[in-house]
Amino acid sequence: MDQPIDINRKEVRMPTNKTGLARVLRSDAKGLLIGAALLVALFTVASILVDGFASANNIRSILLLAAFLGLASLGQTMVATIGGLDLSIPFVIGASNILLAYLFGTSVPAPLALLIIAVMGAAIGFLNGVLSYKIQGQALILTLGVGFAVVGGAQIFTTLGSQYSGTVFSQVPAWFSNIASISGTTFGLQFPPVIAIWMLVAFTLIYWINRTKSGRAIYAIGGNRTAAARLRISEFRTWVSTYTISGLTAAITGCLLLGFSGGGFVGVGDPYLFTTVAAVVVGGTSLLGGSGGYGATIIGVLVLQVLTSFLVGMGLNYAAQQTVFGLLILPMVALYARSPHIRYQI
């Protein structure tokens, strides 16, 4: 600013004194890059230390479990991008899991049953969005409350019809089992369709987020609500629709998990309570909103899943895995989600 600016110059560019790498490290892609590096490093180390880690079977299994976590984390990523959190995800997963199993046991045709569950999930998400809109700071608690109510209600519903509570058994159609079980095949290829479904969903979502107006609206809201309002981007609509997506994907995850296990169990969602948040955070989406994305979450999901597999392979139990996850979150967050010092906020 020392030199007066020549206003007649048509194009004034800053000298590009930064290398490409330095630029990437400043940008949002930083998290993606670090996550990918971590993923490669983890995989390499695990392949060396654990026999058979790089086997097709193990990779298939990692991808299968990653697909579930990935789908469960989809909504969480969306919601986190606008600065919210959805803790109802594990409960919606559990509820839809047992309700679908219940419906499979009735005369409802399977596709209709799936549709009913999907609509229910979206409706719960919608409810979450509407109820938490005015109390966004408390969205965490509110979604938790809704989640408890949903899972309680679903269990009461399924219990009243049968003697079994919380677990519902019925014959899962073979085609549906094939979608999500490890031995499933996709057009004759040796991997379960759910992996392909996940990839397809991920691709569509990323395209939608990046290339459409409604996708960009999520980032606009996450970045600056007032400015978004000035551009006629409705905060309410965006907030509610992201929660609706979250409810929908949670319900779909719950359904697919039924295909995976073959029997309804309300507890299937439990591992996803904080793991979805961890996947989002490890991937590089800041919970403050506006940054990150599903691409990052995919990396986060894969990192967590490879890590889990690695830790299991190393003989570490669930407890130690949790500790390692926790220890992983801190440096990842410290890398890209630090808030500025208070003196820069004045």
């Binding site: 026999d51 079977n57 193990n58 392979g313």
Partner: peptide, 9 residues
């Protein structure tokens, strides 16, 4: 499933 997948023994 997780165990079998990660323990080829």
């Amino acid at each position: 499933q997780k165990f079998l997948a990660t323990n080829p023994t």
